[in-house]
Each structure stands twice: as structure tokens, then as C-alpha cells.
Design a binder for these strands. Structure first.
Lengths: 217, 217
DNA sequence: ACTATAATTAACTTATTGGTTAGTTAATAA
DNA sequence: TTATTAACTAACCAATAAGTTAATTATAGT
């Protein structure tokens, strides 16, 4: 039969808390996200938060873990569909970008953590970022080995991609506003995420592709 | 004669507060920077902070204003020494990078603000970022006009530069740590700021320079 | 039906913090 | 010398927030 509607359901409550915590943390940042507010949003008693997650930090760690696992598996999964370095690279950028755009908490939480030596939950953040980086480097490496990419410093390119995407996404409203105030300056205000990715990928390839070997996918 | 050492000195006190506020804010972030702690660090009475800056937000605005003016004028000033687009571009990147590296509060404060819709002081941040962007675009534009740069979306390149630099700088300790834990992965841990700039400029030029017109400075 | 336990709640505690205020002392100009 | 003002201080206040606790209710296994 259909699941009966329970008045008590640990998993559901936990999920409810996490869901609202994600938006709350990304809206307000860690410090300004109050657990009272979270309880109110979730429609649960504040004590439940501590019951399930021990303390604020624990909850935050759970939140970060969840979204990092999500982005990680999204990118890793997508990557399986390709084998040519150029496609892999484009897939990496686009998947990350689309995900980040659909879940705008990702860039803001990520930038905040990164700008702060992984202030609140270093380990969680770290392992995830590392895994993505390993994939990214392996794509570049494969390209090099096949002779279609020139040699580069993967860490710098990685941050180039992430930095650009995250900033473009988080500053979207800012850029639109700036363009309205002064239409002279081109803030790429109209660009949607796929156009941005097109641009970035184009630039990346211009950096990477070995001259006169462009067709060597 | 020499200035007599005064027991009371508005300007000195103000400066003292700002100086310590800069480090405090960048260490702890806006929310976790307490005014009690600031007063203690500055060796002044807490009330002085409010006496001079009205409230915490006002102080923060003053802090941001100061550092943004600094970076802005550093870059603008340096730019006067060049006229060839390629040199101008390199100068822009290097001056920003060196400054940010010498004053590591800049990247962390900047990223935090940017990742948050200019959370705390939108206007101040905004005008400064805009001015730097205008300079950056004008460099690219000049390059295009002279036929040595290809056409690009300046906003994206701008964030590419700032994103990469700020991330590389703020994650320095993180990267060193990661490399120590697993020496397999190349986190560019050893790279100093000038090497990083070399790399970035090299990549930027590979993106920008019109093929077979590379010498056309 | 009974019991053990997991889920839930209201009320409370404790600490911190941004900000105020009323009063005090140093400098300065008449 | 004195009056005025600007710089400075100690003590205080109200609000908020993280975290606790002791009691209560639903649920599931026996």
C-alpha cells in the first residue's frame, strides 16, 4: 500500500532540515544563519536540529557534504559519456556550470569556504575539490599524451575554470544592475550560462590546443 | 619642532582602528569580527569605534573603501608606464597579483563580498570593481583596435584573471597542505606569485593574440 | 495491551555582541 | 584663566543565538 502519512519520521525531518539549511546558509552565510530561523522555516522544533546534527557546525558539514557529493557525482557521471579530451573538457565545464547555475548556493558557499582556508569544514570541502581536480588534471594529461593539448599547470587552469564560473554566476544580478545603470560597459549581462560556457571553453581550447593540430580530438 | 606626542589624536586613533579592522575582518570575516576584540587589539575603548564610524557596517565600509582605493590606484598608476596592450595587460595582472599577495586580506574580503551580491557594502565595492574593469576592457579594446588581440568578452576575461588570482592566493596554504599529503597531485604548491602571473599572462596571451601577429605589440 | 525507545516539544540557560550613555579629561582659543 | 569643544572611558542595556534539559507523545516489537 501507499506509505502511510506518519506524524513522526526521522528521515523526512532530517531531509527537511538539510534542505532548508542549504538555502539558509547560502542566503545568509554561515554566521548569519540562525538555527531559530532554520527551525521556523523547516516547521520543526529547534531542538531537532541539534538532535540530528549535534551542533551548527555539524549541520553545516552535512550540508556541504551533500552538495559536494552532488556536484561531484554529476561531473563524474557525465564524464563517462566522453573519451576525447576536448569533449571531456567541455563536458566538465558545462556540467559544473549548469549544476552551479541550477543550485546557486554552490558557488556562494564554495567561494566563501575557499576564500577562508576552508574555514568551517576543511576536510569535507577538501576531499571533494581534490577529486574534481584529479579528474580535471587527468583530462588535461590525456590531452597532452595524445598530443592535442599543450602542457600546462593544471591547478591554475582548474581555478581559472572554477573562479570564472563561480564569479560569473554569483555576480549575475550585480552585472545586470551595472549594465542598467551604465549601458556603455559590457558586463555580459544578457549571457545565459550556456553562452558563458561556450565562451570559456572556446578560450580554454585556444590556450590548450596545439597549433595546427586542432582537429586531433 | 617635532610633533609633540599627544595623548589624544583623532586621526591616529581612527587610523589605528582601521588598520586593525582590516586584519580582523579578513581573518574572521564580517560576522565573526567582534568590536570588543577590535577595541582590545587597537588598545582603544570600544566606544571609539562607534564614535568615529557610527556602527560596524560603517567601519566595514571604511575598511573596504580604503583597500579598494589602494588596489585601484596601484593598478591605475602602474598602467601609466605602458602603452602597448600586451605590456598593459601583463602590468595589470602583475600589479593586482603582487598587491593581493602582499595584502592577503584583499582576496578574502573581495571573494566574500563578491560571492554574496556585495552583501555588506555594495556601492563601495561596486564602483571600485567597475573602475578596474573599465581599465581592463580598455586594454583589450586597444589591443583589438590595433589588430593584435582577437575580440573577446571582457567581463569573462576579467573574472578569469581575478578569479584565478584570488583563488590561487587564498588557497595557498591549502594547496601546500594538499601537496604534502599526496605528492602525486600537482597543486602548484611551490609556485610564488610571479610564477603564477607568468603562467596566467602566458595563457591569456595565447587566448588573445591574433595568430601570426604575435609580434604586433 | 504493554513496554522500550525514538521523535518531538516548550521552556530555559548562558554567553556574546552591537550599540548607548553619562560622565571625565585633555587640548585650544579667547 | 576659563570656557568650549573634542577625545575618551567605564558601565550598562537589550537582543540574539547556540545549545540544553526534562518532559511528552508516537511507534513498533512482543
Amino acid at each position: 500500500m501507499s506509505k502511510k502519512i506518519q506524524k513522526r519520521n526521522a528521515e523526512a525531518s532530517k531531509a527537511l532540515i538539510i534542505t532548508h539549511a542549504i538555502t539558509l546558509f547560502s542566503e545568509k552565510g554561515y554566521a548569519f544563519a540562525s538555527m531559530d530561523a532554520l527551525a521556523k522555516r523547516s516547521g520543526l522544533n529547534k531542538a531537532m536540529v541539534f538532535y540530528y546534527f549535534k551542533n551548527k557546525k555539524g549541520l553545516y558539514a552535512a550540508v556541504m557534504h551533500k552538495i559536494l557529493i552532488q556536484i561531484q557525482s554529476a561531473v563524474l557521471e557525465e564524464n563517462k559519456q566522453h573519451s576525447a579530451p576536448r569533449e571531456e573538457l567541455e563536458g566538465f565545464v558545462r556540467t559544473y556550470a549548469r549544476f552551479a547555475c541550477k543550485h546557486p548556493y554552490l558557488p556562494s558557499l564554495l567561494l566563501r569556504e575557499l576564500s577562508d582556508n576552508g574555514a568551517i569544514v576543511p576536510e569535507v570541502l577538501f576531499t571533494s575539490m581534490k577529486q574534481l581536480f584529479v579528474l580535471f588534471s587527468s583530462i588535461l594529461k590525456k590531452g597532452e599524451d595524445r598530443g592535442c593539448f599543450v602542457h600546462t599547470a593544471p591547478m591554475i587552469l582548474y581555478f581559472m575554470v572554477l573562479g570564472t564560473l563561480n564569479l560569473m554566476i554569483t555576480t549575475k544580478t550585480l552585472r545586470i544592475q551595472a549594465h542598467q545603470e551604465d549601458s556603455e560597459i559590457d558586463t555580459f549581462a544578457s549571457g545565459n550560462i550556456d553562452e558563458i560556457v561556450d565562451y570559456i571553453v572556446e578560450e580554454m581550447l585556444r590556450m590548450l590546443v596545439v597549433p595546427n593540430k586542432g582537429d586531433n580530438q
